[in-house]
Amino acid sequence: MTPVQRRRLMWVLIVLLAGGLATTLVAFALQRNIAYLYTPAEVLRGDAGNQERFRLGGMVVKGSFQRAEGALEAHFVVTDGDATLPVSTSRILPDMFAEGTAVVASGRLENGRFIADEVLAKHDENYVPKEVADKMGAAHTKHDVPVPAVEAR
C-alpha cells in the first residue's frame, strides 16, 4: 500500500467514524426528547413504564375540574372511557380548556397523579386528536364521555 493510498484510507476511516459518532449523538438526543402518548388505562396498566416524561391523552371528566379562587393550581380527571387518572397542573390552562373536551397533557406520573407541565385542549367536543381517538376507540361511552368521531384534516 502506497503512502497516498494509506492517507486516503485514513481519511475515509475518519469520515466514517465522525459520521457514526454524529448519528449516535443525534439518536440519543432524539430518544431523550420523545414523549409518548398514553391513555389513563395504559398508564394504570403500566404501559408507560418508568418513563420520566410522557403525554397523557383523553377527555376531561365533567364535574371534575377544581381550582381555588385566585390560584393557578388546577386539578381535574382525565378518562379514556376505561379508566380515569387525576391530573394536577400549576401552569396556565388554555382558553379552550373545559370539562368534556379532549386534552393532551405533557408531564410525569407522581404518586398515582399525573403532574402536567403543559396542557393542550380543543374547544369543540366533536373533535378529538387522532392519536387520542385511536387509543380510546369508538366504542367507549363510560364516565359520561362519549368518544366523538375524528375530524378529517
Rank of each mutant, 00 (worst) to 15 (best):
V104E: 07
A139P: 02
M136I: 03
F114N: 09
G107M: 09
A74V: 01
R67A: 05
F97H: 04
P3N: 12
G19I: 11
T23R: 07
F76T: 00
S88F: 15
V43G: 06
V4I: 09
P148A: 10
A121N: 01
M1E: 03
L109F: 08
E125G: 14
A35H: 14
V61I: 08
V147C: 10
S106T: 11
V26P: 03
L17E: 02
M59T: 09
L93P: 02
F54V: 02
G49E: 03
L9Y: 00
N33E: 14
A98H: 06
A149T: 04
S64Y: 04
H140W: 01
I34C: 01
P40M: 03
R67D: 06
T24H: 11
R32S: 12
R32E: 14
H75W: 05
T79N: 09
L16H: 04
L13A: 12
E110T: 10
V77S: 02
T79P: 15
F54P: 01
L85N: 09
H140S: 15
A35G: 12
F28W: 14
V147M: 12
H143M: 11
E73Y: 06
L21V: 13
T39P: 09
A149I: 04
D144M: 11
Y38F: 15
E118K: 15
E52N: 13
T141L: 13
G81I: 08
G20P: 03
V119F: 00
Q5D: 08
M1Q: 12
M96V: 11
R53A: 02
L13S: 08
V103T: 04
G57C: 10
G49P: 02
Y38T: 13
P3T: 07
I14L: 08
G137M: 03
M59C: 12
F65A: 05
L44I: 15
R45Y: 05
D117V: 03
H140D: 10
A29S: 13
P148R: 03
V103E: 02
L56P: 13
R67I: 02
Y36A: 09
E125D: 13
R108W: 02
A98D: 13
Q66M: 13
G100P: 04
V43K: 07
V119Y: 00
R91C: 07
H123F: 10
V60T: 05
F76Q: 01
A83F: 00
L72D: 08
R113P: 02
P94Q: 09
T89C: 09
L25G: 06
I92P: 11
A68R: 09
D80V: 03
R108A: 12
A22M: 05
G70P: 03
V60Y: 01
K122G: 08
M136W: 04
E52W: 13
K62Y: 01
T24C: 11
S88A: 14
E99L: 05
P3V: 07
L16T: 11
L56F: 00
T39F: 07
Q66D: 07
S90N: 13
